[in-house]
Amino acid sequence: MFDNLLESIEEKKRIISVVDFCEGNLYENKIDQNLSRKKFQTLYSIDMDDLVEFVDSEDEKTIVLVHICQHNIRACTRLNEVLAQISIACPYIKIGYIEETGNQFKKEMLPILIVYQNGDVLESHIRIIDEIGHNFDFDDILNFLLDRKYVSPSEVQCIN
């Protein structure tokens, strides 16, 4: 009976060590995956002529956000401020804005947020303030990205 108890304890120890090893490897693999990913951590100003290169130059896993804006629209200015913070908190997302100076977009359509991955448009949010509200902040945009799974909670870094 004592031998069976010892065998049972040894078996539990072996199982625990296998689980610990697997969890450690999963953690290390997650770190390795993030170490090999490109970090952006900035809000890029781009021209409409550079949009294709801006979007297509990244690997298939990278989410690219493009904000089409006009500086004289309060919601556009606010969204750029928040996206600058998001770019730091979500370093694996590439974020840029295009200052719309012509008449390609009516003011009533702005701000526009377009989401790309692997060169394809995933979503286009015309007048995004209708979705997130007029008094949006960092948390609103972060939750918007989390809800749509453009960023995972484990990829979000704390910012001060």
Rank of each mutant, 00 (worst) to 15 (best):
T77V: 14
V18W: 11
L110G: 06
A75H: 15
A84H: 11
R74L: 13
E60P: 01
S45V: 04
C158N: 14
L26Y: 12
S36C: 06
I141G: 14
L110D: 07
Y27L: 10
D3Q: 12
E100G: 01
H125K: 12
V82I: 15
Q41M: 10
F21Y: 12
L142S: 07
E53A: 10
C90Y: 05
D139T: 10
S17M: 09
P111D: 01
V52T: 08
S154C: 04
F54H: 05
E100N: 12
L146M: 10
K12F: 09
D59Q: 04
G24E: 04
E123P: 12
T101I: 05
I15R: 14
E11D: 13
D20M: 07
I73A: 08
E100K: 03
H71P: 15
E123R: 13
D137W: 07
I31A: 01
I98A: 09
I98M: 07
D49Y: 11
I31L: 04
E28K: 15
L26V: 10
Y97C: 07
V19E: 11
Q85N: 14
K61N: 15
M48E: 09
F144H: 04
R127A: 13
I112P: 12
E81S: 15
K12G: 06
M48G: 15
I98N: 13
I98K: 05
E23C: 10
R148K: 13
Q70K: 15
R78D: 11
L51K: 08
V115F: 03
E155T: 07
V156P: 02
A75L: 10
Q157W: 08
S124K: 12
I128M: 09
L65P: 02
D50I: 01
S87Q: 03
I31Q: 00
L83D: 07
I129N: 10
V66R: 04
E58W: 02
L142E: 06
I132A: 00
D140H: 14
C158G: 11
T42W: 02
G96Q: 03
E10M: 07
I141Q: 07
K13T: 10
I73K: 12
L35M: 11
S152E: 06
F54R: 04
V55S: 09
R127Y: 10
D47V: 01
E60L: 11
E155S: 13
H67W: 00
K38H: 09
K12H: 13
I63N: 01
F21P: 02
V18Y: 11
E60I: 09
E58P: 05
E60R: 09
R37C: 09
I86T: 05
G119P: 01
I31C: 01
Q33P: 00
T77K: 13
K30M: 04
C90P: 14
R78N: 15
E99V: 08
I86H: 03
H125P: 03
L145T: 05
S17P: 08
E28G: 01
I132G: 01
K61H: 13
N143Q: 09
